[in-house]
Design a protein around this nucleic acid. Sequence first.
DNA 1: TTGGTTAGCTCCGATTAACGG
DNA 2: CCCGTTAATCGGAGCTAACCA
Lengths: 329, 329
Amino acid sequence: MRDVAALAGVSAQTVSRVSNGADVVRPQTRRRVEEAMLRLGYVPNRAARSLRRGSFLSIGVVVAQLDQTGEALVTAGIVDAAEKFGYTVSLVQVSTPGGNAVVGAIDRLVASGVDGLIIVQAGPADSDIGALPLDLPVVVSNTKLMDRYSAVVSDQVQGSRLATTYLLGLGHQTVYHVSGPIESMSAAPRTGAWRRVLLEQGAVVPDPIVGDWSAESGYIAGKKLATERNITAVYCANDEMAFGVIRAFSEEGISVPNKVSVVGFDDISLSKYFLPALTTVRQDFRRIGHELVEVIVDQIQGQNRGAHIQRLIPCELKPRGSAAPPQTS
Amino acid sequence: MRDVAALAGVSAQTVSRVSNGADVVRPQTRRRVEEAMLRLGYVPNRAARSLRRGSFLSIGVVVAQLDQTGEALVTAGIVDAAEKFGYTVSLVQVSTPGGNAVVGAIDRLVASGVDGLIIVQAGPADSDIGALPLDLPVVVSNTKLMDRYSAVVSDQVQGSRLATTYLLGLGHQTVYHVSGPIESMSAAPRTGAWRRVLLEQGAVVPDPIVGDWSAESGYIAGKKLATERNITAVYCANDEMAFGVIRAFSEEGISVPNKVSVVGFDDISLSKYFLPALTTVRQDFRRIGHELVEVIVDQIQGQNRGAHIQRLIPCELKPRGSAAPPQTS
DNA sequence: TTGGTTAGCTCCGATTAACGG
DNA sequence: CCCGTTAATCGGAGCTAACCA
């Protein structure tokens, strides 16, 4: 900064005024300073600025598995929105399922200097997370932590009802279900809503099969479901598992959707191009990312630090080729 | 820090020593200090520390589309490895293809305080990137920027040869090709290697069809390829496009692999569960992420700032169901 | 003397207030 | 009204001189 001031023939004071957009600087002087900044490749030192102002202009983001479409898209949305608000994004991952990995990850983020925390997914062992003595704003996208922190999440219940009622509406007697892991934050409400719809409509409630979100677990579930006699419809808690189920069915000579209808959840980019194209429930991940940032920036800058905000993002049914009315036998 | 010192009954000096792991502190005193830190939830202020030490312990990462498997996995690898080295990861995205978006993104990162830069993907308009007056270490995973900066990339040529020779080895007379966008950094070497193999083996070289990595573009390419008479094998520059091609073929009544063999590139997690399971060339994205961090940390900490390092990560063929010997007519 | 510790000072780089030309 | 000077401040790190076993 000293150098810039020297080159422009002004004082450090003025440089600071320019770089912070004060309006008491003559345009001509401002131009001289800006030129000098450019020539010297001057970038205000972030550390000094943060130290002085007491904020980092940085948001910490915790993800579990970045290679899952949902987390990747939410993260992308967060990065986009954060940029608009002038914030940087610091990313940490909690892939190791071990005990207090989440706490460790959050500690790392806090130590790295962030003004707020967004927890996209905390992995399976996220129950210990409540005990954090944080004075930082926290926003989550995780139904399990919703009651503790502000949250922006997909309306899992609405989406799940959508899928189930759609299948019943097509004429299926009941709907089988491949769920996510029981301890998962997204799986439970989906399974719950599916069960409730079946009960409401007086349909038999088959035992759900538990998967782990992977196509492989769907494949295994599909092999098991293929042995059921009266199965005509399956609702899978995500698209990957639906793919696995369809693959297993195909190997067993069960055609989709002719013999069995399959519906997924998420609408990942490939679903449209699967064979058959997957009927699924679309989550608006990018929007979730955007709103997460809105909420946390509001909590960081606004005075409503303690506010407990809940935003539900609606899901949308995407009818495609993998679901059809049951075969009249 | 003052409070911690007071609570532990020591001086700020000693607190600093403890938090930096100096060895001249009596274990008993150390314990007292650590207890006080814990009780007060003390976290050393990153800004102050950075300011004093002149480093941020942070790595900036530039991605283009986080929802693409490759970038997501490389990023995941980077985050993992960075953590091991004690670095934080700052993420920015260059989704807007506009002119100097890359430069803007990098400016933001630099302004946010990073010690080095990893460019995973810079998007289509990355040609202007060479003109950066950076005194920061930069490592890329991008064949187009390889000659300018240190790089860790998949051995596209080797992988592409693998795919092409495999298909020829199965007995196909020639291999059609669906490439990535011409301006892409990964597409060119793949297409080049494919062409060279065909020429080496004296096979006819069909015009490649240009896609944009999306399943949709593969689908369009597939529709076009379906009109070719003597086609028996297609090599697609990524898996998504391969899915699109297979879908188009299926709609046109062309069975894969019975009539036409299809090979992809990447080995995304779903490839194994597609129908048919996709024969493809696996890239080790996570490893690329790890090595990117190794290289950049070396350049940040070591004295070989100017070194121009090139690491090629080999690819691996995954023979699955979508490629087979040509039908004997 | 030695090792553990303390008090006190400077410095990192930018921001900001007060005051003056 | 525009700008310079001066000095204080943010929180921690590094150094020295001194202190007490």
